[in-house]
Amino acid sequence: DFYRCHTCNTTDRNAICVNCIKKCHQGHDVEFIRHDRFFCDCGAGT
């Protein structure tokens, strides 16, 4: 499962994972996106 962060203006080409929300995007306006054509390269392994 992935998310888009409207606060940081993520686009259709990138998304964030749950670990990104916990570490970098906590309290931001995020939108849940189940699956799409992207991956998270944060290195958290999710």
Rank of each mutant, 00 (worst) to 15 (best):
D1M: 14
D1W: 02
D1S: 14
F2P: 08
F2W: 11
F2T: 13
F2L: 10
F2M: 10
F2D: 01
F2E: 04
Y3I: 03
Y3V: 03
Y3D: 03
Y3L: 06
Y3E: 04
Y3T: 04
Y3H: 09
R4G: 04
R4D: 03
R4F: 14
R4A: 06
R4P: 00
R4H: 04
C5R: 02
C5H: 02
C5A: 00
C5S: 01
C5Q: 00
H6Y: 07
H6C: 06
H6R: 13
H6N: 04
H6V: 11
T7C: 02
T7M: 00
T7N: 03
T7R: 02
T7S: 08
C8N: 01
C8Y: 01
C8P: 01
C8K: 00
N9M: 12
N9C: 10
N9R: 13
N9Y: 14
N9V: 12
N9I: 09
N9K: 13
N9W: 06
T10P: 13
T10L: 09
T10W: 05
T10S: 12
T10F: 07
T10Y: 10
T11W: 04
T11C: 14
T11I: 12
T11M: 04
T11V: 14
D12E: 11
D12Y: 07
D12S: 10
D12R: 07
D12P: 08
D12L: 06
R13A: 14
R13E: 13
R13Q: 13
R13N: 12
R13D: 09
R13G: 14
N14K: 14
N14L: 04
N14Q: 13
N14T: 09
N14E: 06
A15K: 05
A15P: 10
A15C: 05
A15D: 02
A15R: 07
A15H: 07
I16P: 00
I16E: 03
I16N: 03
I16Y: 05
I16R: 06
I16V: 12
I16W: 11
C17I: 01
C17G: 03
C17Q: 01
C17S: 02
C17F: 01
C17A: 03
C17E: 01
C17H: 00
C17D: 02
C17K: 02
V18Y: 10
V18G: 11
V18C: 09
V18M: 12
V18H: 15
V18K: 09
V18A: 12
V18T: 14
V18P: 11
V18E: 15
V18F: 09
N19P: 04
N19H: 06
N19E: 12
N19M: 07
C20Y: 00
C20R: 02
C20G: 02
C20I: 00
C20T: 01
C20S: 01
I21W: 06
I21C: 05
I21D: 03
I21K: 05
I21R: 05
I21G: 01
I21F: 08
K22Q: 15
K22G: 09
K22V: 05
K22W: 09
K22L: 06
K22I: 08
K22C: 01
K22A: 13
K23P: 02
K23S: 12
K23E: 15
K23F: 04
K23I: 08
K23H: 11
K23W: 05
K23V: 07
C24R: 12
C24F: 09
C24N: 07
C24I: 15
C24M: 12
C24W: 09
C24V: 14
H25F: 00
H25D: 00
H25L: 00
Q26A: 00
Q26N: 08
Q26E: 09
Q26S: 10
Q26I: 08
Q26P: 09
Q26Y: 04
Q26H: 14
Q26D: 15
G27N: 15
G27M: 03
G27C: 06
G27I: 06
G27H: 05
G27A: 06
H28L: 00
H28G: 02
H28V: 02
H28E: 04
H28I: 01
H28D: 02
H28Q: 03
D29S: 09
D29T: 08
D29R: 10
D29A: 09
D29G: 02
D29M: 05
D29C: 05
V30I: 12
V30P: 03
V30Y: 13
V30D: 04
V30M: 04
V30G: 02
V30R: 02
V30Q: 02
E31S: 10
E31V: 08
E31Q: 11
E31L: 03
F32Y: 11
F32S: 15
F32H: 10
F32Q: 10
I33W: 13
I33C: 11
I33Q: 12
I33M: 07
I33R: 09
I33L: 14
I33S: 07
R34H: 15
R34S: 09
R34I: 09
R34A: 12
R34N: 05
R34F: 09
R34M: 06
R34V: 06
H35S: 13
H35W: 07
H35M: 10
H35Y: 08
H35V: 13
H35R: 12
D36K: 09
D36T: 10
D36V: 13
D36H: 07
D36L: 07
R37M: 12
R37Y: 03
R37G: 14
R37N: 10
R37F: 06
R37P: 11
R37L: 10
R37A: 14
F38N: 11
F38S: 11
F38P: 14
F38C: 15
F38T: 10
F38Q: 12
F38E: 11
F39A: 15
F39W: 09
F39L: 10
F39T: 13
F39Y: 08
C40Y: 05
C40F: 00
C40Q: 04
C40W: 02
C40E: 05
C40L: 01
C40R: 03
C40K: 05
C40A: 00
D41Q: 09
D41T: 07
D41F: 06
D41H: 06
D41A: 09
D41G: 08
D41Y: 04
D41K: 12
C42R: 00
C42P: 01
C42I: 02
C42N: 01
C42E: 03
C42V: 01
G43W: 06
G43S: 10
G43E: 12
G43V: 08
G43M: 08
A44K: 12
A44E: 09
A44M: 11
A44L: 09
A44V: 11
G45H: 11
G45N: 05
G45T: 05
G45A: 10
G45Y: 05
G45L: 10
T46P: 06
T46F: 04
T46S: 15
T46Q: 10
